[in-house]
């Protein structure tokens, strides 16, 4: 994988948007569910994005998605579509929208919203089964989401 060149592409695209960081409640979605502005105000790091996607306690994306480029990580699920070639199907703003709140792109989807902190029923304190204490953190930070979408943009056929 040629991460270096593609990271450049990603940072160029992010650089064109208004500087963040943005709070989960302030994310602006287009009518199609895309998010134009970088959430963190900084470019994404594709290599770290790959790590977020395969780490169970972070994105855990491979639990539901098969990704050939991440095949060293075990047990890819198939609840969601394969992400191979996803960088051809969606641009960065669209990917950012899908990651931030996939329900804005796919009505009723089972894909978790990674940058939403309210509106949940019986929110818990992570995976303890106990009630959440105080406000929730998003599942991923603004920068982690930028990192993931930088990596996704490298997934071209």
């Amino acid at each position: 994988m040629k991460l270096s060149t593609l990271t450049l592409v990603a940072s160029f695209a992010a650089g064109t948007a208004i500087a963040g960081p943005v709070a989960p409640a302030d994310v602006v979605f287009t009518e199609d569910g895309a998010v134009e502005a970088s959430l963190s105000g900084a470019a994404g790091d594709a290599a770290n994005g790959a790590k977020v996607m395969t780490t169970k306690s972070l994105g855990n994306c491979v639990a539901c998605h098969q990704v050939t480029a991440l095949s060293e990580a075990p047990f890819h699920g198939n609840v969601g579509p394969s992400l191979d070639g996803v960088g051809d199907r969606w641009n960065l703003a669209e990917l950012r929208g899908i990651l931030s709140n996939a329900k804005m792109t796919y009505e009723g989807t089972v894909m978790p919203a990674y940058f939403v902190v309210d509106g949940f029923t019986r929110p818990g304190n992570a995976y303890t089964g106990k009630a959440a204490e105080g406000p929730l953190d998003p599942l991923l930070s603004a920068q982690q989401i930028e990192d993931v979408i930088a990596f996704l943009a490298t997934l071209k056929e």
Partner: peptide, 28 residues
């Protein structure tokens, strides 16, 4: 059918909509 938690999933999301699919190594 009520979706719960920060992952916002109901019993039906996993066991009605996705049985037969895998979540990680789990065959639903």
């Amino acid at each position: 059918y009520t979706r719960t938690g920060q992952l916002d999933l109901s019993c039906a999301n996993c066991h009605e909509d996705n049985y037969g699919n895998h979540i990680r190594s789990d065959h639903l």
